[in-house]
Every structure is written in C-alpha cells, then in structure tokens.
C-alpha cells in the first residue's frame, strides 16, 4: 500500500464534514431560496444593524488579542527562561484549562463573577464594595482573554525555547543592557511566535460565539451569535442564504489573517498549529 493512502480516512472525513458543507454554504450564499444566482445576501452585511455587531466583534477581538499579548509574552519569556526547571509542569498548567469544554469554563466564570458570586462575596468579606462585572463589555473581554490566552503563550514559548541562548550572551558581551537585549534581540527573534499567537487568538475571538451572550446576560452579541440567530430564529425566508453569506464573510476574514501569517512567518516557525 502506498504511504500516501494512509491519510485516506481523514481525507474522507474532511470531504464529508468540511468540504461538502462548505460547498453548501457557498451555494446558499450566492442564491435565493428559489435557487437563482444573487449577490443580494451580501448587501445585508452592510446594514447598520449588522455592521454594529461586526464592528463590536472586531473591536473586542482586537482588545482581547492585545491583552493576551501583554499578559502572554512575559509569561512565555518566564517559562522559556534558562535554568528554570519546572517549565514543563507550568506549561501543563497553562494547557490544563484547555482540556475542559469552553462552555463549561464560561459557566464557571459566570458563577465566579456574578453580582452575588464568589468574587463579590470575597470582596464584601474584605469590606470592599461589590463590582458589577457580569453584563458589561469588561466581562465579555475577560471571558475571551481567559479562553484564548493559552493560544498566545504556547507559540511564543515554542519560539523562545528554540532560541539560541548564546545570541543573548553575545549581545550582553557586546555591551547591551537588558532592555536593549529584549528590544533588539529577543523580541525581533520571536516575531514568528508573536504572529502565530496573534492569529490564533484573533481568529477564534472574532468568530467566538455564546461566550459573549452568556457573560453579558444577552446584552452584547458578537458575529457568531448573529449568524446563529439568523439560522435558528430569524423568520426571514432567506435566512439560510443570508446566514451562509455571513459565514462566508467570516471565513474570508480568517483566510486573510492566515495569509498575513504566511507572509510574516513563511516557514511556520511559530509552531503553526493548524
């Protein structure tokens, strides 16, 4: 048997559950319910009602990515440090939450952040006032960062771990202070990891679904929730067509970010995880 055949089960799986459904989505996106060709489904996209949701998704995904980078980079740097013996176990700790279902983690978050939740009970016990978190944009952002942070830490960690430490020693020997070592050597060399992390956080964040509805008590919905609403609850007879065109637009957004990644990190040094 030729070696190339070994992937046949997976290829069949992909054909059945990724390629064929995608073709359906394309078909619905460009047709009317009667089956004639149209571009009208895409015009819906620019209606202010939908534009607001898309812009909110982009904004929150950007904030989320920035926060993940600010929190994740120092973490990765710390973990990749030389002479640090417990790195493996800490990496496992970072991975641990990812083994649990995302919805469960979000429900747990609701319990923690609720008006009468664990966090507020602790604050009150300390004599500090209550914080209003659930139902705000901040809660949604916290939920997104919490869920996607590991996707930022891991690729940066991979790149930093592989970095030749003698380069840093050389920089120090040649008179660089620690700050300049960071800005002139470490950060530039870890760009592939950063790009990989940024893409892997931004993509799922911008298309995320259910997290925002749950943590905002249904007040803030993102693009994923919009598509869900159109498919499942809308009474519009074109709902499958409009929903498909929206899904396609989100897909294009993801493809653009992958293209961007390829350009900055052509050899997937950031441990390309797809």
């Amino acid at each position: 048997m030729k070696r190339s055949w070994y992937a046949t089960p997976y290829a069949l799986w992909m054909l059945l559950f990724a390629v064929v459904p995608l073709l359906f989505v394309c078909w619905y996106a460009f047709t009317t319910p009667e089956g004639t060709f149209t571009l009208a489904n895409f015009q819906e996209f620019i209606k202010p009602r939908y534009m607001g949701v898309i812009l909110r998704s982009l904004k929150l995904a950007l904030y989320c990515t920035a926060l993940c980078l600010v929190i994740g980079y120092p973490t990765a740097w710390f973990l990749a440090g030389r002479g640090f013996n417990h790195a493996q176990s800490l990496v496992v700790l970072i991975l641990l939450p990812m083994w649990m279902n995302l919805l469960l983690r979000t429900y747990a978050m609701m319990t923690l952040l609720d008006d009468n939740g664990v966090l507020n009970a602790a604050l009150q016990a300390l004599g500090l006032g209550k914080l209003k978190i659930i139902g705000t944009e901040g809660a949604v952002l916290m939920g997104l960062v919490y869920n996607y942070l590991p996707f930022m830490v891991l690729p940066i960690y991979t790149v930093l771990k592989k970095m030749d430490y003698s380069v840093i020693e050389a920089a120090e020997d040649l008179g660089c202070n620690p700050l300049r070592v960071m800005t002139r050597v470490v950060i530039p060399m870890s760009v592939p990891g950063i790009v990989s992390g940024v893409t892997m956080v931004f993509m799922p964040a911008v298309t995320s679904f259910a997290i925002s509805t749950l943590l905002s008590n249904g007040k803030l919905r993102l693009a994923g929730d919009l598509i869900d609403y159109i498919f499942n609850q809308s009474s519009n007879p074109n709902r499958w067509n409009i929903g498909s065109s929206f899904s396609l637009m989100m897909l294009v957004l993801i493809l653009i970010s992958i293209g961007f990644l390829r350009k900055v990190d052509p050899d997937s040094e950031g441990g390309g995880m797809w």
């Binding site: 009602r49 939908y50 607001g52 949701v53 249904g218 919905r221 919009l226 609403y229 809308s234 009474s235 519009n236």
Partner: peptide, 11 residues
Amino acid sequence: MYDDIWMDVLM
C-alpha cells in the same frame, strides 16, 4: 417586521 425590531434591540 417583528424580527427587524428584535434584531435592533438584541444585536
């Protein structure tokens, strides 16, 4: 018509 109103409120 109900949907249009509801989308404006919800989204």
